[in-house]
């Protein structure tokens, strides 16, 4: 199954709409609640990142029997220092983002914690392409 969601830049009024729709789809598939939570937390963090930091992008989800792959592809401007961005607490968030309750510098670390496989391709001035892999096996 293939599903795509468009994520606009800077429009926080729709932050979470894509993740919410995807979560609804995952619930319909009767996946274990813990797996659904891991996936939605990671996708939500990525969605907020696209809105807060990029020129807009999309979330592309591929669902198969045993795995779910979610690609988050934005249109720039890229992450200048990925090592710093992966550090808990490191943030480049603006005042506006902080007032909304985001920008704690936990986005990418939360994503890393929530998925089974993570690949991030980015460069300053280019776009960012995140690929998250999730195994659907029942968790203890």
């Amino acid at each position: 199954m293939h599903q795509e969601y468009t994520v606009p830049a800077q429009d926080f009024s729709v932050a979470g709409v894509a993740s919410s729709n995807f979560k609804r789809l995952l619930k319909q598939l009767n996946l274990p609640p813990k797996v659904i939570k891991r996936i939605t937390v990671a996708v939500f963090e990525a969605e907020v990142n696209v809105i807060a930091h990029s020129y807009g992008g999309k979330i592309v989800c591929e669902l198969s029997e045993n795995t779910i792959t979610v690609e988050v592809i934005d249109t720039g401007p890229g992450i200048p220092n990925l090592d710093l961005a992966m550090k808990e607490g490191w943030s480049t968030a603006t005042e506006e983002i902080l007032e909304l309750g985001y920008g704690a510098g936990m986005g990418l670390p939360n994503i890393k914690k929530s998925c089974d496989r993570l690949s991030i391709k980015t460069q300053a001035g280019g776009h960012t392409h995140i690929t998250m892999g999730f195994d659907l096996k029942e968790e203890s």
Binding site: F12, S13, A15, G16, S19, S20, K23, P33, K37, T40, V41, F44, L100, G101, Y102
Partner: peptide, 12 residues
């Protein structure tokens, strides 16, 4: 704000 509700939704 709405973000608190969205976060609650994602976190069950």
């Amino acid at each position: 704000n709405n973000q608190a509700i969205r976060t609650a939704e994602m976190s069950d």
